[in-house]
Amino acid sequence: MSGFIRLVPMNAEQYERFEQRSLADYAEEKIQAGTWTVEEAPERAKESFATYLPQRLDTPHAHLYMLEYSGGAGQNPEEAGYIWFNITEGTQGKEAFLLDILVYDSYQGRGLGTLTMGALEQEARKLGAVRIGLHVFGHNERALHVYRKSGYRVTDIQMSKEI
């Protein structure tokens, strides 16, 4: 793993791309998890976004960044994905909650997920957070690996069985 990730606040055009991709990915994750049907997923995903990002890019407590990857000295930074987290007041102080993270396919397998989690930690700390929480779908083995590698531990498990 070489290079580094910098979190750069999204602009309006980047937000539009993020929202389109994130809505589609979230709907697909919910379908795969068996939570939503194919028919209802797009609308349910939109409702969820309206709840968590009511003012879109200008939603208070929502932090939306593009991942800017620099592979080394002399290389121009490249857009490698995005990350979205919210900061709220928790029982122990401010808490960050990771809502979406994506490293684009062409950047997968280079350790950028781990680099991004480190950048998230630095940014959340700068914003006063004392804890970072997240949800991960059980079928998302790649994400589970990155989160465990980054020091996250399981705090809750929900299970189901098709019968």
Score class of each variant (00 low, 15 high):
Arg44Met: 06
Arg44His: 05
Ile5Asp: 07
Pro42Ser: 03
Glu19Arg: 14
Met10Gln: 09
Ala27Lys: 00
Ala33Gln: 15
Leu23Val: 02
Glu43Val: 06
Glu40Asn: 08
Gly34Ile: 06
Ile5Val: 15
Gly34Tyr: 08
Ser22Glu: 12
Pro42Ala: 02
Arg21Glu: 11
Thr37Ser: 10
Phe18Thr: 12
Ile5Tyr: 12
Ala41Glu: 01
Lys30Met: 14
Glu16Thr: 11
Ala12Leu: 11
Asp25His: 13
Asp25Gly: 15
Lys46Ser: 12
Asp25Lys: 08
Met10Trp: 08
Glu40Trp: 00
Ser22Gln: 13
Asn11Lys: 08
Glu39Arg: 00
Tyr15Asp: 12
Met10His: 05
Gln14Thr: 10
Tyr15Cys: 12
Ser2Val: 05
Arg6Lys: 14
Thr35Tyr: 11
Glu47Ala: 12
Arg44Ala: 05
Thr35Leu: 13
Ala41His: 01
Ala12Val: 14
Glu47Val: 03
Glu13Met: 09
Glu43Met: 04
Glu19Leu: 14
Glu28Cys: 04
Ala27Asp: 00
Ile31Lys: 00
Ala33Arg: 07
Phe18Glu: 10
Asn11Ile: 08
Arg21His: 10
Trp36Gln: 04
Asp25Arg: 15
Lys46Gln: 13
Val38Asp: 03
Pro9Asp: 05
Ile31Thr: 01
Leu7Thr: 05
Ala41Lys: 03
Trp36Arg: 05
Glu28Ser: 13
Gln32Arg: 15
Glu29Asn: 11
Glu29Phe: 06
Ala33Gly: 15
Phe4Gly: 09
Pro9Ile: 06
Ile31Gln: 00
Ala12Phe: 08
Pro9Thr: 08
Trp36Met: 04
Asp25Ala: 14
Ile5Lys: 07
Tyr15Trp: 13
Ser22His: 13
Leu7Asn: 11
Phe18Ser: 10
Pro9Tyr: 08
Trp36Leu: 03
Glu40Leu: 02
Gly3Glu: 02
Ala12Tyr: 13
